[in-house]
Simulated scan of single mutants.
Amino acid sequence: MVYTIEELFIGQIARLQRTFSEADVRACNELTKDYSPVYRPSEENWENYYHQPIVPGLLTEGLINQVISDKLPGSACILLQKELIFYHPVFVGDVITAELEIIDINIERNWVTQKVTCYNEVGNEVIKGQAVIFLLSNKN
């Protein structure tokens, strides 16, 4: 569903879930040219960093952006601000849920502020923060 700013309300929640694969990590590494050993299971020394390869934060942030563009508001918007704290690493194979909740609406500016929470399949928060978006139009 696509929402106009008038249809949004404080407390409104949207979620998406995704499992990140080694192929996702490789594609992200190629696009960003970030080849840190924490992302590569084939490196002999990766076990010195974490007990398994981690997913780049950029991929999990992408899931947050997908919730905004596909669900809440699901309409044309521009990300104005995003503040995130990464509490725990996301590992390849983790099932990550990104949940966004509207906490403020500024109709005069067409701004919407959303609380961001991402958690893994066992319920551990991996990312927390907020995002402010600018809705480009009030029309469907």
Rank of each mutant, 00 (worst) to 15 (best):
N45D: 12
S21K: 03
Q12P: 03
I10N: 02
V2E: 10
L16A: 13
S21E: 03
E47V: 07
E30L: 10
Y35T: 04
R26Y: 14
I13W: 05
E44S: 09
E44V: 01
A14P: 09
D24V: 11
T4E: 03
K33Y: 08
L8A: 08
E47H: 08
Q17P: 00
T4I: 07
C28T: 05
D34H: 07
R26G: 01
V38A: 13
G11D: 05
R40Q: 07
A23R: 11
V2Y: 04
N45F: 09
Q17E: 14
L16S: 07
L16F: 05
E7P: 06
L31Q: 03
E47N: 04
Q12V: 12
W46G: 00
Y39S: 01
E22T: 02
A27H: 06
D34F: 09
R26I: 15
Q17I: 13
Q12Y: 07
Y3A: 05
M1S: 15
S42D: 10
E43M: 02
V25T: 04
M1R: 15
R18S: 07
R26E: 14
E7A: 10
A23F: 01
F20H: 09
S42A: 04
R26N: 03
I5Y: 13
T4G: 05
E43G: 02
Y35W: 14
C28R: 02
A27D: 07
D24P: 11
F9R: 10
T19S: 06
A27K: 08
R40V: 02
E7N: 13
G11L: 12
M1T: 14
E44R: 06
P37L: 08
R18Q: 13
L16G: 02
E22I: 08
Q17R: 14
C28G: 01
T4K: 12
T19L: 00
E22C: 03
D24C: 11
E7R: 13
D34C: 10
T32K: 04
G11H: 01
C28M: 10
N45E: 09
K33D: 14
E47S: 06
F9N: 05
E43T: 00
V25N: 00
R18Y: 11
V25C: 04
N45P: 00
N45A: 08
A27C: 02
S42C: 01
N45I: 10
Y39K: 00
T32S: 14
T4Y: 11
Y35K: 03
G11P: 01
K33W: 04
Q17W: 01
W46C: 00
M1K: 14
T19M: 01
S42F: 01
E6N: 15
I13D: 00
D24I: 09
S21A: 04
L8M: 15
E47R: 11
R40I: 01
R40E: 06
F20D: 11
R26M: 13
V2K: 15
I13L: 05
T19R: 05
R40F: 06
Y39H: 15
D34Q: 10
R40M: 04
I5D: 09
E44N: 04
Q17T: 15
Q17M: 10
Q17S: 14
K33R: 13
F20Y: 13
W46H: 07
I5M: 12
P41G: 06
Y3P: 05
E47K: 12
R15G: 00
D34Y: 07
E7T: 11
P41W: 00
Q12I: 13
C28L: 05
L8P: 00
E7V: 14
T32M: 06
L16C: 06
R18I: 06
